[in-house]
Structures are given as C-alpha cells and as structure tokens.
Amino acid sequence: MKQFLRNKSAVTGSIIVGILIITAIFADAIAPKDPYQMDIWESFRPPEGLRGEYILGTDDMGRDVLSRIIVGSRISLLVAIVATGVSLVFGVTLGAIAGYVGGITDAIIMRIMDLILAFPSILLAIAIVASLGPGVVNAMLAIAIVRIPAMVRVTRSMVLSLREEDFVAAAQALGLSHARILFRHILVNCYAPILVVATLNMGTAITVEATLSFLGLGAQPPIISWGRMLALGREAIRTAPHITLFPGLAIVFTTLGFNLLGDGLRDISDPQLRGR
C-alpha cells in the first residue's frame, strides 16, 4: 500500500479511474440536465461556461453535451470492465492450461492465438461485429476476443516459469490434483502481471469501443456513448467543434487514467523496474 501511494502514476491513475467510477455510478445525480431531453430548436449552442445554461453547449439535437458526456461514462466503463473481464477469464484459463499441460494442447491453443493475432485487431473487431450485428454486447464480445491472446501469452509465460518451482513439485508430491495446483497454487502467484495487462486492456477497450461506435457498429440509440457522440458531431466540426472536442477529450482522459494505473501497478509489481 505504501508502495502504491508513493507511485505517482498509480495514484494519478486511480484518481482518474475513481472519478470515472463515481461519475458513472452517480451520473443521474451529477448531470445538470436530462441527457436524453432533446429540443431541436436549441441545437448547436456553443459552450456557455459554468454560469451558462449549457455548460459545454448542446449537440445537433439540442441535448446538453456535458450531461451526455457524464452519462456516457457508463458505457465506456461497462465496456472496459466486461470486455476485459471476458478476455481475462478466457485468456487466463487458456493460458494457464497451455502453460501447465504443455505439449499438443499448448500447441493448439497457441496456434489459435496466433490466428487471432495475425489480424489487425480493429479489422477483426469490425468483421466480428459485422457478422454478429451491431450493438454494445456484440462490440464488447468483439473487443474481448481481440484482447484474449495478450492475456493468454502473459499467463502462459508466468505459468511456465512457475511450473518448475519447488512448491509445485512439493504439491505434486502431496498428490494434489492438477486443477488444484494450477488454480490454487500457481495462478495466485502470477496475478500481478495479469492485473497489469488487464488494466492496460481497459484503456484499449475504451478506444476500440469509441472506434466501433464511430463507425456505427457499437452502442445503439438511445444509449449514449462517446464514440457515437463523435460520429454524429463530426460533420459539423467547423461550426460546432465542441460536439467532437469534449467527448474526444473524455476518451483521452479516461484511457489515460487506466494507462497510468496500469503503469503504476507494473512498477510496483516488478521490483526490478521500480521507479523507472
């Protein structure tokens, strides 16, 4: 904990992520206006500042941009957590099996991962969503699939190195089942790098969701997503730049938060790199 508090990246990152989580949970209370309320006679109002009625202006349908960014944090957070969660579960399980069992199982799993890695990830995500149909759930699934190989690789390499440790041999000598050894003894010892990768994946998930939504393949109306805000605002980028500027900054800011946190966690978990 002390280490954590001393690490500037980790602290800054967790503050940003904390802000995001609190914003997402209390979005309805924080949002100054109803983010869904449209009044097309009030569209394209420029930002009016803290004292104005619309602090960050209104969008193309007269909805309050600030309120929409606040409520939009929910989808970003949800996608980051669910997509990363799914890739975590599958990635760690597959990686652990590959590393522990080895042999042909290992080879098959890793070849499949190579297969996924051979695609540029955004292209694969687009293809998956195109065949499953657009929507938040399918977008999350696509992001998860794309991120699995990284998880598998990290887990596998950790398991490989831990497999030869004395305590594993001891557990095997005691006659413990392989599943028990793998999950109770090996995996608990490699959570740190997995956590780091997972945190960094959350940042990626947010930008990929934004890209998919920008292409119209992610969240569907009336769900508010930052990527969708960018997509609908981009035409009017000259006369109403605020509609694309602020959601974009929100994406950068939260992704930055997850990346800082991931960096910090890496420094802490890998003593060799500490302070670098």
């Binding site: 960018l230 981009r234 980028i237 974009g248 994406i251 990346n259 960096d263």
Partner: peptide, 18 residues
C-alpha cells in the same frame, strides 16, 4: 507518451484537420 497512447488516431486526425 501517455497522452499519445491514449488518443484515438481518427479523433486526432479530425483535430489536426480542423
């Protein structure tokens, strides 16, 4: 570096254009 890695390329492109 951190800001760079957190910025979606297409959004950066739009900003650079305008």
């Amino acid at each position: 570096a951190l800001v760079g890695v957190s910025t979606p390329g297409f959004w950066l492109g739009l900003m650079l254009l305008t």
